[in-house]
Simulated scan of single mutants.
Amino acid sequence: MMVRSGILLAALALGLAAGPALADVAAGDKCAAGLNANSKMIYDATKPRIKPGVTVADELKSVVRPMVMGGKLSRSDAQAAAEPAGKCLALING
């Protein structure tokens, strides 16, 4: 079931590939200000990992999976929260 969850998280974040440089941290933070608590937690935990050359989807998986395994988020909450967090992270990684 965890593999399926990981695949779903990756699918939600498809298209959020890394660009050559960080695009707009301020825009990402502004976007994140409107997130619900779970999405904001994911955004805050993933943001420091967003650097040139990384893929947002990979970083989301690396951050969210331990949150689920550690009981911070249920799988369904993580799935629902990862997509909006990923959209804000994509603004940073343009």
Results as ranks from 00 to 15, higher is better:
L60I: 12
G94N: 13
I50Y: 07
N93L: 15
R49F: 14
G71F: 04
G71S: 03
N36T: 03
D29M: 02
A33R: 09
L12N: 15
L16Q: 06
D58P: 00
P84H: 11
A18H: 14
A23H: 13
V54A: 14
E59G: 06
M69N: 06
A23N: 09
P84F: 08
G34Q: 14
T55H: 15
L16I: 00
R75N: 04
G94T: 05
A13K: 10
S76W: 04
S74L: 09
G19A: 06
E59M: 15
R65M: 15
K72C: 01
K51M: 13
M69T: 13
V64K: 01
A45N: 05
I92Q: 01
G70V: 03
T46I: 13
V3R: 13
D44T: 13
A78P: 02
A27C: 08
V25W: 10
P48V: 11
I50D: 04
A13G: 11
L12E: 11
P66K: 11
L91T: 12
I92Y: 00
L60E: 04
I7A: 10
N93T: 14
G6K: 08
I42M: 07
C88K: 10
M67H: 02
A11Y: 13
K61Q: 03
R65N: 14
A26Y: 02
K61H: 01
T55I: 12
K61L: 12
K61P: 00
N93D: 13
I92M: 02
L89E: 08
D44Q: 07
S62N: 15
K30P: 02
G53M: 12
P52Q: 15
C88H: 04
A82T: 01
A13Q: 07
A32E: 07
L35Y: 06
N38S: 03
A81C: 07
L16A: 06
Q79T: 14
V68A: 04
G53H: 08
A27W: 08
G19R: 06
D24W: 06
S74E: 08
L12S: 07
L16T: 07
G94A: 13
A78H: 05
K40N: 02
L60T: 04
P84V: 11
P84A: 09
G28A: 15
L14S: 09
P84M: 13
A17G: 11
Y43A: 09
E59C: 09
E83Q: 11
G28S: 14
P66H: 10
G19E: 03
L16H: 09
S62D: 14
A81F: 05
A17V: 09
D24K: 10
L89P: 05
S39R: 02
K61V: 07
G6T: 06
L22A: 14
V68K: 00
S39H: 04
Q79G: 11
G86D: 12
A90Q: 13
A37D: 06
L9N: 01
L89I: 12
A26I: 06
A37S: 05
A32H: 04
L22Q: 15
S74A: 11
G6I: 11
V68Y: 04
S76K: 10
L8F: 11
P20T: 13
A90L: 09
G19H: 02
A10Y: 10
E83Y: 08
K72T: 03
T55R: 12
C88I: 09
L91G: 08
P52I: 02
K40H: 04
I50N: 03
Q79N: 12
P20S: 08
A85V: 14
K30N: 12
M67Y: 02
V56A: 15
I42N: 03
A90I: 01
K51I: 10
P48A: 13
K51C: 05
R4G: 06
L14Y: 08
